[in-house]
Structure formats: C-alpha cells, structure tokens
C-alpha cells in the first residue's frame, strides 16, 4: 500500500496533528494560508512576509450542517470556523460529528482519507475534529 499523499500540501503538512502553513508579517499580523502578494494589515510584501507553521488547535467559533450544496461535494456535511490558538480563524470541513457543535468546543486538526488520485495513490485531506483526551488541553 502506497503512502497516502496530501491533497493540498501547500496548506498543511503530514504531522500528527498536521500543522497549517500560515504566514507572518514583520508588522506582527499572522495569517492563513501563506501568500506572497502582501499583508492585509499593513501592505508589506517581499521579505516582510515569512512562512509560519500554525498549530491546528483552537476553539470552535461556529458550525453548521450543510443540507443543500450545488458543488461536487455531496451534502450533508458539517463545516466550522475555528479560532486557532495561534491567531487566525480558519473555516473548513469538520469530521467526527454529523451535527453542529457548541461554540467554544476544543478542536484539533486531523487528516482523513479522500478520493484516491487517478493512479490509485491514496490521498488524505485536512479536517478539524472535536478534541479528545490529551488533545483537550
């Protein structure tokens, strides 16, 4: 069995839990995802912007079960907004729940299997899940 490939390696790594590939500006603004166009807070660009690994841990701000969706993703699915302990708010799909969760809930990043690549290589993608046990701290 081949090692699973990350669906979007520019956004997260394969750690456990995975880290998100964010950025930080010399002005102190921390953002996700990493981009080189310029800082939304101060306009700084070039060497003022540097990569910053963001721990995929935080608190749930809001969530919703999506019942109807026009894209390729089959509904229902659950999405959430997570305020990372490292600053930025990240919005993405949730796993480990099929209902919305109470705001404030501790969340942690995880990788879940998704559709394999055309050559059959298994792939994983990033999700947030409710934190359990030692992740709760």
């Amino acid at each position: 069995m081949a090692e699973p490939r990350l669906l979007m390696p520019q956004l997260y790594d394969g750690g456990s839990p995975p880290a998100l590939q964010g950025g930080v500006c010399d002005c102190g603004h921390v953002f996700f995802p990493l981009q080189a166009y310029g800082c939304e807070r101060c306009g700084g660009h070039g060497t003022r912007l540097r990569p910053k690994r963001l721990a995929a841990r935080g608190r749930l701000v809001a969530s919703a079960v999506v019942h109807l969706h026009a894209g390729e993703r089959p509904a229902p699915f659950v999405v959430g907004a997570i305020a990372l302990d490292d600053g930025p708010v990240v919005r993405t799909l949730l796993t480990g729940t099929d209902v919305s969760l109470p705001p404030g809930c501790r969340m942690v990043g995880t990788l879940v299997p998704v559709t394999p690549a055309q050559d059959g290589t298994p792939r994983v993608d990033f999700r947030f899940a409710p934190a359990m046990g030692s992740d709760l701290s």
Binding site: P33, A62, A64, G71, V79, T92, S100, P103
Partner: peptide, 20 residues
C-alpha cells in the same frame, strides 16, 4: 488556495453566523 471555501456558499457563511 483554500482548505474548503467551495463548501462554504453564502448561505453557509450566514448559517455559521446564525449559530454564533
């Protein structure tokens, strides 16, 4: 790139605000 912005249509953006 984005993690899953395609999954967050305007009605889902506001559904999360409603939850909040």
């Amino acid at each position: 790139p984005s993690l899953a912005d395609d999954a967050i249509a305007p009605f889902t953006h506001f559904a999360m605000l409603a939850d909040q």
